[in-house]
Write a protein that binds this DNA or RNA. Structure first.
Lengths: 143, 143
DNA sequence: ACCGATTTACTTGACATCATGAAATATTCA
DNA sequence: TGAATATTTCATGATGTCAAGTAAATCGGT
């Protein structure tokens, strides 16, 4: 059993903590290079794929819709995002990335070598093993 | 090579993103059960191991010392932490967990089964492989 | 060994962002 | 018509930065 006092489990837990910390450092650093906060970068990344209603953004971010209003306000003030009416439902406002927003999102993705660079040290076989172990750890099955 | 368009690498990157999200959910949920924020829980965890000067807390949190003042203020107001003078340097204030703070920190650790429970699905050998792959990914060598 | 200048540790204040919750408005749906 | 939904606004609190201020330690020149 994996108990709390199991040394091996504790080592893995600590490593995962390090991964989480490293992930955020890289993410925030990349965002800051474009004068964006982590939350703004995350929303811009979502919207660069497809326009989304405010409410769905809140669901993705697991936060209150009233919070999304402010984040979109700030992105809109910088010309990275725009609000559009939803033709199908006049209550809904769709947030959509502008051309400049998509450009910034692409640069952000390119700068985010958190996983790309350290993973380069692993062989294909090793990456496959890592992928499968992470999947099982997360309780996902092979798609 | 691990390029950005490498499917396997992208899968691993996405899984790591999921791990990060899951980690935060669990952490914040466990903290909220004790009416603590994530930042407060993190600092309390640090101080439950050893008292630390304010400045070192800021280094661990990678934030400004002025920010730590407020976090310790709130923990101190709840009796979980206390400030002590450092006998060796009167400029320094040591933040130390109180008995109640240590108790809360222990309960927090026990509630944090993020890694314990999902890792239970892996065998010892698999956990060892996972540990070694994560270490190499993070650029650490065996201690 | 002394003393002034610099550095270090912490706090305070002003401000921006992120987060929640309650109330207001507009629109849709039963 | 009345209930439910989508968004915004407002009040509030936690977190974060930066600049300025206070207290204490350290350094360098005499």
């Amino acid at each position: 059993m994996a108990t709390r006092t199991d040394t091996l489990t504790l080592e893995v837990v600590e490593l995962i903590g390090t991964v989480v910390a490293r992930y955020h450092e890289e993410y925030d650093r990349a965002a800051a290079e474009h004068s964006l906060t982590g939350a703004q970068a995350r929303v811009l990344g979502l919207l660069s794929l497809e326009p989304l209603p405010m409410r769905k953004i809140a669901v993705r971010l697991k936060c209150e819709p009233s919070n999304v209003t402010g984040i979109i306000d700030r992105l809109e003030a910088r010309g990275l995002v725009e609000r559009r009416p939803d033709p199908a439902d006049r209550r809904v406002k769709l947030a959509a990335a502008t051309d400049q927003g998509r450009r910034t999102a692409r640069e952000l993705r390119d700068a985010l070598d958190f996983a790309r660079e350290p993973l380069a040290g692993l062989s294909d076989d090793e990456r496959t093993v890592l992928r499968d172990l992470l999947r099982r750890m997360l309780g996902e099955e092979a798609p």
